[in-house]
């Protein structure tokens, strides 16, 4: 199966020390991949590199088998979208207006029904005319995810979409992502901090100091030793996670 995203030996620095070193990752189609690692490990940098916001100093980034650099911006936008952790919107766009912005990279005749479908998919149909800035943190994340969905993105890169959400919204959002992945065959790569949630993903990638530390199915990858090495946390009784 062709990987939708492939990073090979990526190097990047913000000007000082290298923040991503020789990093490789491959994400398959239809998967929910988590990037975990301590603060400053390079999770956000990897996501920004993967969608082209940052340009790598070396290495190769392939999107659906083709070099990321070779995509015209509009074509790229139809395949991959990136959502930062915090999006300040201080102009009162309504949910419908916001999701409509997602149609821009698409050809002129993208159907307005898609906006409705996307709102339905994230459960915001009842809020279509509410200003985005008046939504709760969880609803706001969902509105932006709907915007990425109408963009046509087959690959969603989400930077800590679960941050600031309470338990109910966290679980709700992960379920929503799984549902969308199943229905639409898209792939999601997201940075996250919650180890328990990481167990419910298809695969995880552990980053430490800009390097890939471990990669694979959550149960095999997130072990007591990895947590100790990467997060410097000693768990005497590391909980066996329940199946999600």
């Amino acid at each position: 199966m062709m990987a939708c995203l492939e990073l090979k030996n990526i190097r990047f620095s913000y000007g000082g020390a290298q923040s991503v070193k020789d990093f490789s990752l491959s994400a398959g189609k239809g998967g929910l991949t988590g990037l975990i690692g301590p603060n400053g490990a390079g999770k956000s940098t990897v996501l920004k590199l993967a969608c082209g916001i940052l340009k790598p100093a070396g290495g190769e980034i392939k999107l659906f088998g083709k070099d990321l650099k070779d995509y015209p911006p509009k074509e790229r936008a139809k395949l991959v979208s990136y959502l930062p952790q915090l999006i300040d919107v201080n102009i009162p766009f309504t949910v419908r207006e916001l999701i409509g912005i997602g149609l821009y990279p698409r050809d002129a005749k993208a159907s307005p029904h898609e906006t409705d479908e996307a709102m339905e998919a994230v459960g915001l149909r009842g809020k279509r005319d509410s200003p985005v800035m008046e939504l709760s943190a969880g609803e706001r994340r969902r509105a932006f995810i709907a915007m990425s969905l109408v963009q046509g993105s087959s690959l969603l890169l989400l930077d800590e979409p679960l941050a600031n959400l309470d338990l109910k919204y966290q679980i709700g959002l992960v379920r929503l992502l799984r549902k969308i992945i199943e229905e639409r065959g898209i792939s999601v790569v997201m940075a996250l901090h919650d180890i328990n949630t990481a167990f419910s993903l298809h695969s995880v990638c552990v980053i430490k100091d800009g390097c890939m530390y471990a990669h694979g199915a959550p149960r095999q990858t997130i072990t007591k030793d990895v947590l100790k090495e990467v997060f410097e946390v000693d768990w005497e009784n590391f909980p066996t996670p329940a199946a999600p």
């Binding site: 969608c51 916001i53 936008a77 991959v80 300040d88 912005i101």
Partner: peptide
Amino acid sequence: RKGLNALILGDEVAFSLGFS
């Protein structure tokens, strides 16, 4: 106008939508 709407969401989102 489309670029204006996109810029309101921040440079990273605007980029992700295919704008410079």
